[in-house]
Design a protein around this nucleic acid. Structure first.
Lengths: 343, 343
DNA sequence: CCTAAATATTTACGCGCGCAAATTTTTAAT
DNA sequence: ATTAAAAATTTGCGCGCGTAAATATTTAGG
């Protein structure tokens, strides 16, 4: 049963029989008031319909409970999935995530970081574009707020980085592919919009060398974020012209692979590792739809959960102790080989 | 070149040689000040690094420039795509979109709406769960803020609804399928989490009757948002047991269809409308990945752009004239038949 | 029961800006 | 040039809460 609406903290404190500063303390950190007081306030909260005014709260506060989350493109399921988990981690810890997508545009990443400033975030979790990012904007943010990068790293910006160990994951895939059939060619974008692509290419080269195989890289023209389209068009071209030097293609990411699978299907090629198949295709990331491609895509699963939680925890530590980490940390999690039918 | 940092509007007004209230007016609406004054302010903005404090701005304001956008699940590419366009429409018009995903949980939709309150949004754009939504929470929001529903409608809640004309779109698809081959069975979730599913089922029934065909509906068990998984499991079961009464299946949405295509592939069934194919599969929504399924999915394209723009415009009109629409409007856009290879 | 520590209250100021009313200045129209 | 309208300025209050210091009260430990 809701009584008459409470208009501000003063009124709420009055009807609760508690002083306003104590109520203020409660909202700032419920654990900071005596258990009996906490109980009275919470009983009152059930009875009366009140929540503090966010703007007034944050207006005159040293540090807010806001955490900015900026990702390059929420239309990419990889980012929507990882952003989702980061968001939940923030909420669980009592923070207010402010999610912003840069819609594939580094320029908007800059704007997002700028407008984040005015929200005085306690900290920022950023999955940057990488080289395409406006490094000054990122450094500026990092100067004024605790910053943790995830997914993609930029030099020594921010206080921590969390991502996947591309060297390990690609090596594992190359090892598997070499062991189970012909060594893989590598298929990627010519101008990748993400630094992981470069790491994966290098990892491929290193791994092939270790296995004593001849590397063979194919780069697709095309700009933007329509990876499936590019994978289909350019991959299809390569497939139909029999340009690949082996019957196995490792794609730089699942979205390219999905496009390539589509192209292969269109060309009547049978994809898979069983007898009678024409080609093997593998990807990287374990994109949410990779399980449902035809055939299901063999890929590397990134540990979304671990990355999201670790990124948040790295930030959380700084918030708790009220200072930057003494040393920049870089954490990478291992990828997991997900064997399906495509390779 | 940036001079010393400005601390507040007072200081900025001083260095600009303009009074604070006028500067305030400018930030509230640049068009409300004389062109010459505007030019001086903007020159000053280039010179000095200042942006008004968001919290102070909104704290004592009748109405903010915030627009709340709430969608059921950003992990679903349909919603991430439409949310993206709504966001951009807001930004273009000078508003600040606040995007919130309910992560598939009606309970979180309620929480999102509650916490939106405290941001005093100028208006709210909501793609509700439908029957699963907490109707009281939605009505409460609608009582205090202009509200436009999109994608899914709820009775007469809010001041406007914008979506797709399911009756038209499904009829068009049924007509096409009947004309080009065997009449379609209908495949859907038993307990759909979205009111559009019910409309589509009804549209299917009506349309089949109009065409003098016997309708045949198959409902998949399963809860939650893993539509592909459900489509694959349950669809696969139906396919392998030859339960479908015709060789054509119309799925309630593309995600189910994607799962079913995956199941068909696994069973070695050939999907398509050409000779030698075993089954035709069609979907609804033109999901971003439907173009890359194997075979590419024949489906109905919703007009994302039109829906997003119209939803925003309906809200914008209310904001402009400062009052609710005199009458609740419902706008539906026609779907577009996208013929690919699957049906 | 006494004492010290922990917690709550009282009092008071200020954050940065919105907003309104009265006044002055600028602009546009006659 | 005169006048009315439009825009800018001055003045000043208040939003709702954070926060700090001094004081009072409660709690825990012996």
């Amino acid at each position: 049963m809701r009584y008459s609406k409470i208009r501000n903290m003063e009124e709420f404190a009055a009807v609760s029989g508690i002083s306003r500063p104590t109520v203020s303390k409660y909202f700032n950190d419920p654990g900071s008031v005596r258990a009996s007081t906490r109980a009275r306030i919470e009983a009152s909260l059930k009875k009366y319909d009140y929540q503090p005014n966010v703007f007034a709260m944050n207006q005159n506060r040293r540090t807010t409970k806001n955490i900015g989350i900026v990702v390059p493109n929420l239309a990419d399921p990889f980012f929507s999935e990882i952003a989702r988990r980061v968001e939940l981690a923030c909420i669980d810890a009592g923070y207010s995530p402010i999610l912003a997508s840069s819609h594939g545009s580094p320029e908007m990443e800059r704007e997002n970081l700028l407008s984040l400033r005015s929200l005085k975030p306690a900290g920022v979790l950023l999955a940057p574009f990488g080289r395409m990012s406006d490094e000054d904007a990122v450094k500026d943010i990092s100067h004024d707020f605790p910053l943790v990068l995830f997914d993609a790293n930029i030099g020594d910006v921010g206080q921590a980085f969390v991502g996947t160990d591309n060297a390990q994951s690609v090596d594992m895939m190359v090892e598997y592919l070499c062991r189970s059939g012909e060594p893989p060619c590598f298929f990627e974008m010519k101008s990748p919009s993400n630094p992981n692509a470069n790491k994966r290419r290098q990892a491929y080269l290193d791994s092939m060398q270790r296995h004593g195989r001849e590397p063979s890289i194919f780069q697709a023209d095309g700009e933007g974020w329509h990876f499936e389209e590019i994978g289909k068009t350019e991959g299809g071209r390569l497939l139909s012209s029999k340009a690949f030097s082996t019957n196995t293609v490792l794609c730089s990411n699942d979205r390219l692979a999905i496009g390539m699978l589509s192209a292969a299907y269109g060309l009547g090629l049978r994809v898979g590792h069983t007898e009678g198949c024409d080609i093997r295709v593998a990807g990287h990331d374990d994109h949410p739809f990779s399980k449902f491609t035809c055939p299901p895509l063999t890929t590397i699963a990134q540990d979304y959960e671990a990355i999201a939680n670790r990124a948040f925890n790295d930030l959380f530590e700084m918030l708790e102790q009220g200072e930057r980490l003494s040393e920049r940390t870089e954490t990478t999690f291992e990828g997991r080989l997900v064997m399906r039918d495509s390779a």
